[in-house]
Amino acid sequence: MDLLSSVLREVRLESAAYRLLELRAPWRLRFDGGLRGVHVVACGRCVLRLDGEPPRDLGAGDLVVLPQADAHELGSVGSAGRPALSSLDLARRTPGTRLAAGGAGELTTVVCGAFTFGDGDHPAVAGFPRCVHVPAVDGQPPGWVAGVTGALLAEARDGGPGSEVVMARLSDALVTRALRHHLQTADEPGWLRGLHDPHVARALAAVHADLAAPWTVSALARAAGLSRAAFARRFTATVGQPPMQYLYGTRMRRAMTLLRAEHATAAGVASRVGYASEASFAVAFTRHTGCPPGAWRRRSRSRTAAAGAGPPSSPAPPVTAEGALARRW
């Protein structure tokens, strides 16, 4: 399995139902964050305003994926000074999946959805970009975008029994392909750029294939086919953090996942994430989370039980995008 697929399985990508927005100028919608968003401009044009970044002009056929769940706005051209309508308020007052807003001007149709990561603190997620923009060419999206979004649009308009499942599976494919597009075209530092660099990708693949190995910078450099100094510089510049910091974060996230399992012992988890002793693992884990492994496990299970998810010994249920969408969108 390729590394992108492996990591997306680790972070547990889940997509939610989509809604079809029919918007006539002037209009301005605010998405307050908390969900990782997907927007497909089916027709018309609009402006994406991501907090802290310059506005992006979007047109028919454009796809935008927001992997970091950042607050943002969509609006008609020239709407910057208008009051923004909350997308959540619009959804609450409109039954069904087709939502309408705005005035009497130019029509823009946007298919909007959301997705979650079951492990949003995974080190790879921190390295995802804030915005993945797959632009259309002369109003025509790339073939893979057209195929998937056409099916999504049909489900959003005409959905029947099983429609949410269909849209979730289509969205999984759309998000994955968008991340692959960014991997192949972007040049800013991040985990996806690391996959595009053949030397760094070999090191990343080695780490994820055998997290328990006694990795050092020198050992990872050998896996990458570079000298130690050249590898350290290249990894840091490409991924955005030093190799051992990435390794440490990856091991701790895996340890937290394993500790949630009912029968995993601290000693067993230690050996599976590359620590020679339970004591050294406990020190590293406490540094990362602020409490020892046993206390962290008890706290995690207490939170699960308090939330009504079952007895303290039960593993935590997955976070579903459908539930998140119902609460926030």
Results as ranks from 00 to 15, higher is better:
Trp191Lys: 08
Gly310Trp: 01
His72Arg: 14
Val165Asp: 07
Ala100Thr: 14
Leu4Gln: 11
Ala84Gly: 11
His288Cys: 13
Phe31Cys: 11
His122Trp: 13
Gly103Ala: 14
Arg254Ile: 01
Leu107Asp: 09
Ala282Ser: 15
Val47Met: 02
Gly75Tyr: 02
Asp197Cys: 03
Ser171Tyr: 02
Ala309Arg: 05
Arg82Thr: 10
Arg130Pro: 07
Pro242Ala: 10
Ala71Asn: 07
Met167Trp: 02
Ala279Ile: 14
Ala69Glu: 10
Gly139Asp: 09
Val134Arg: 05
Tyr248Cys: 07
His208Gly: 07
Val273Cys: 05
Leu35Asp: 04
Ser171Val: 03
Asp210Arg: 10
Gly308Cys: 12
Ala266Tyr: 01
Pro318Ile: 13
Ala212Tyr: 01
Arg177Lys: 13
Val239Met: 04
Val283His: 08
Ala101Asn: 04
Arg12Gly: 03
Leu247Thr: 02
His122Glu: 14
Thr238Ile: 06
Asp70Thr: 09
Leu90Glu: 08
Gln140Asn: 06
Thr257Phe: 00
Val269Trp: 00
Val77Leu: 12
Thr149Tyr: 03
Ala261Gly: 12
Ser302Ala: 15
Gly44Met: 06
Trp191Ile: 10
Pro129Cys: 10
Tyr248Arg: 12
Val64Cys: 12
His288Ala: 14
Val319Trp: 01
Thr286Met: 09
Gly240Ile: 05
Gly249Ala: 11
Gly310Tyr: 02
Ala168His: 02
Thr108Phe: 00
Gly44Lys: 03
Arg301Ser: 03
Pro243Arg: 05
Val200Phe: 01
Thr304Pro: 00
Thr185Cys: 12
Ala264Glu: 13
Gly34Ser: 13
Thr304Tyr: 00
Glu14Val: 14
Glu155Gly: 07
Arg169Asp: 14
Gly118Val: 13
Arg30Asp: 15
Gly274Ala: 14
Leu20Trp: 08
Ala91Arg: 07
